[in-house]
């Protein structure tokens, strides 16, 4: 049985009581369907994360200089800010 409230907390989602009830029903029927995978034995199979083998793409960790207009655009969409900083609530 899926612990909806615990998972919602992990996913950082606030759900109403009504949503929790609905989610419990819907998710369990979808998870039942996923049980189809129990039928198949994959002990010796390697997992695929990407359809083609991808290599790590590396570069020097240097900041790229952005024009001020670009930075201004990023600042403009911030919901709460102080000067040129984003403002957040206290963490603890």
């Amino acid at each position: 049985m899926i612990d909806v409230e615990h998972i919602a907390r992990l996913a950082r989602l606030e759900l109403s009581q009504d949503e929790v009830e609905r989610m419990r029903k819907e998710l369990s029927s979808i998870l039942d369907y996923f049980d189809l995978l129990k039928k198949i034995n994959v002990k010796k199979v390697k997992p695929t994360s990407h359809s083609f083998s991808v290599e790590n793409v590396m570069r020097e960790d240097l900041p790229k200089k952005q024009p001020k207009e670009k930075n201004d655009k990023l600042l403009k969409v911030m919901p709460e800010k102080k000067g040129r900083y984003t403002k957040v609530k206290s963490v603890l």
């Binding site: 998972i7 996913a11 606030e14 759900l15």
Partner: peptide, 20 residues
């Protein structure tokens, strides 16, 4: 609060399934 109110039903459902 932002995520609970900002996302629609299907998106929440899928985030829940993925998180699980």
């Amino acid at each position: 609060e932002n995520r609970g109110q900002g996302f629609g039903d299907e998106v929440k459902r899928r985030i829940m399934l993925g998180t699980y």
